[in-house]
Amino acid sequence: MNGKFRKISKKDLLIGLDRIINDGRKLAALTRKGEKVLYDYVTKSDEILMQYIPTVLSPKKFFLPQDEVILEYTTKGKVTAKIEAESMVLFGIKPCDLHGIKILDEAFAESNGDPNYLAKREKSLIIGLDCSRLCDEKAFCYKVNAQNITTGCDFMLHNTGIDFAVTVYTEKGAEQLDKYFQTEIKSENILDDFNQAKAAAFSKFGTFKQLKQLPEIFENNKNHSVWQTEGDKCLSCGSCILVCPTCYCFDVADEMALNLKKGERIRRWDACMLNSFAVVAGNDNFREEPKDRLKHRINRKFNYLMKKHGESVCVGCGRCVRACLVNISPKTIAETITGELSTGG
């Protein structure tokens, strides 16, 4: 932007969001449905909550639906792949979830790519909404530096109190910003105040002291006593996996119609903390105890996949901590294993 900074007034933001809806595009944002606060499609901008309240599920659900028909078939042998993707705008996505989306983007682009996920991503525009402070005491994004982003959305808004400063990340973001929103170009850095306030709010929180070394540390601590003590507490209810913005394991099932003449292949979210996930053909189970499954889950975040993605695959959103009835937390486990907890780090 040639050293120039863009801002958008709250009024123009809402007008722009209504333009998106009136254009026939689906707009998903943080909203209230009865007692629930969740990301869902809205029909008017005034249904949108600007103040973040932690949600049960992350925006992952828009790209990787809970149940998705990926194929239709008939018993006569006709097979049709199904890829459904609608033009969609996600508004108000927080930095932790943008990290989550970045990780899913990488995972689903691997080898031949996942056409269903990629088609939905291709047709989506993601508008981030920066955090100026920690959303609650369960969030620990700062532990893995996920409160700040470098990619993951098309453009990001920073609420300065009066206006929203805009950071554009993609060409699509720049083009769509101009298409729907009235912005003002300023020569002074209007982001400074926001950034300073944010840095101050997060100043007392630091990352894991050995963040970069976590994969190695976890690799060397497969027999740490924390797996047993935390595993014994675990209900194996699967909640932590269901709510995780970076868990992407799924199950695939063929379901015949009742007339037994045609059927659908459906993929569904699955969860490695569930006993049923770990059972394989012949009724064997390679991760029979909750501690084995917990070790696997946490190593996926701080070890196996962290090596692959080059950053922690736990984004510290805190959803699993909020969902866990027995207080199992990736943060506590990592702090225990690194020794931060006992040294009061």
């Binding site: 049960v56 599920l57 809970q66 209900l235 209810c237 699967g238 969860a271 569930l274 049923s276």
Partner: peptide, 12 residues
């Protein structure tokens, strides 16, 4: 063969 929590979470 999984808990009701799974469906509660899916329903948010």
């Amino acid at each position: 063969d999984y808990s009701v929590c799974v469906e509660c979470k899916k329903n948010e």
